[in-house]
Design a protein around this nucleic acid. Structure first.
Lengths: 233, 233
DNA sequence: TGTACATCAGTGAACGCGCGTTCACTGATGTAC
DNA sequence: TGTACATCAGTGAACGCGCGTTCACTGATGTAC
């Protein structure tokens, strides 16, 4: 409609302030410990006042989740955006490295998105799923463009999809992406996700020592297995 | 010392009953919702009575965690035990499939072991870590035996370890296992872990459809990449 | 420009619920002589 | 075999704390005429 009024702007500022405090509280005490009373205390407000800004505790959490997915996807897209469009290997590596960096820099947000559910809370899928899909989309998009540029080399085992999955992928195409790309994208995502989850929850075997190198090497191996090589520098 | 008395046996029975109820409560409401009062309610006891059996809420959780790790490792070892010792590929495949099955059959236990920490609880590492290491050990052991039997074929990229990791692995050897095996074992574990985590928390892209096939194929690919092939049946 | 009214932010008391943990106790089960 | 005592399981009241949410309210900010 019209430009936001002064009140609207103040209101927006307070909303984001509430979410900032929620995130800090979550970072200190864990995702399950986000509490309206706690936030109000931090802000010097009554708990009741927060109901002016969020319908309920659950609404706040949902918004934190959606914000989280979007922030992560924004980070990926931003990293991708200032690389040469034709440098597919570099773009993919960068995006996957940024994926991990985001996770490590926003540990509790990442846990909120991909970890245990919060007791008593169930995410409303209609709101949450579209935002969640954006991250995967960034990865798929780069692989897709690499394929269109004729750079993808699919050799065994990555030229083969288990039949049940093949069929399922054909039945439910996702934005016209070829099944093999969805398959490779999923495998790739699962791999980096596993490493990050282990690292985040302190389960990477300590004898490894350098988790950054472990991750980077795994990403490079993954890319090479579909024919994407980094230029020698 | 001597045989357990009648009282000792009753006591043990009550302890396990408490843990059973704790697990059920956790399965229904999430790992963060284990409560002494809730368990007592379920058992028709006063909350105070539980203090006869567990020092505190945290002690109970620690014991659930240790039990969980051990149950999982037992399942892996049992599955491995009744396969021919020389059938390394089959053993590895089986163990990794059982790893996932255990996770899916004991979802909340798996979350307790590998997911978000419980608010206000910190696991005592001295107690928890040894039990945690058993699972990894089962996998490493099979790879190790395959190598000793001369069945492991290490080709690029799996013959190469990033230098920092190489060095770290050499400095802190783990039961005399060669660095390359620790490295491959870790990568393998991270891969299957990632798939399971995605599946457990409902993040596997729905277009895939058959998560069992996805997992199985990934395990087979992983094994083939180090030269382990299943016999044609 | 000034007044009357509507909108909104925030308060404070209250409801009803949950939790872990302590403490002094009762009553049953087992043990020593 | 019978009695006296010690051990243990479980009780019930209480402490002190947390939480989300409702409701009727005050007082400031903005809006319409």
């Amino acid at each position: 409609m019209s430009t936001p009024t002064r009140r609207d702007r103040l209101r927006e500022a307070t909303r984001t302030e509430i979410k900032t405090h929620a995130r800090r509280q979550m970072a200190e005490l864990g995702t399950a410990s986000i509490s309206l009373r706690g936030i109000a205390r931090d802000m010097g407000l009554t708990a009741t006042a927060l109901y002016r800004y969020f319908g309920s505790h659950d609404d706040l959490i949902t918004e934190l989740i959606v914000d989280g997915y979007n922030a992560q996807a924004d980070a990926l897209e931003a990293a991708d955006a200032h690389l040469p469009h034709e440098a597919h290997a570099q773009r993919l590596l960068t995006v996957m490295l940024v994926y991990r960096e985001w996770a490590l820099e926003h540990r509790t947000d990442f846990q909120l998105l991909y970890g245990n559910p919060i007791p008593g809370y169930t995410a409303p899928g209609e709101i949450t799923t579209p935002a969640a899909a954006r991250n995967m989309a960034v990865i798929i998009k780069i692989i897709y463009e690499a394929m269109e540029a004729g750079k993808l080399v699919l050799t065994p085992p990555h030229d083969h999809i288990p039949p049940t999955i093949q069929q399922h992928l054909e039945n439910s195409r996702w934005y016209g992406v070829p099944p093999i790309l969805m398959y490779i994208g999923t495998i790739g995502w699962a791999r980096i996700h596993g490493m990050i989850m282990l690292e985040l929850f302190d389960h990477t075997p300590p004898v490894i020592g350098d988790t950054t190198a472990l991750y980077r090497q795994e990403v490079i191996n993954l890319m090479q297995s579909v024919g994407l090589y980094l230029p020698p520098d």
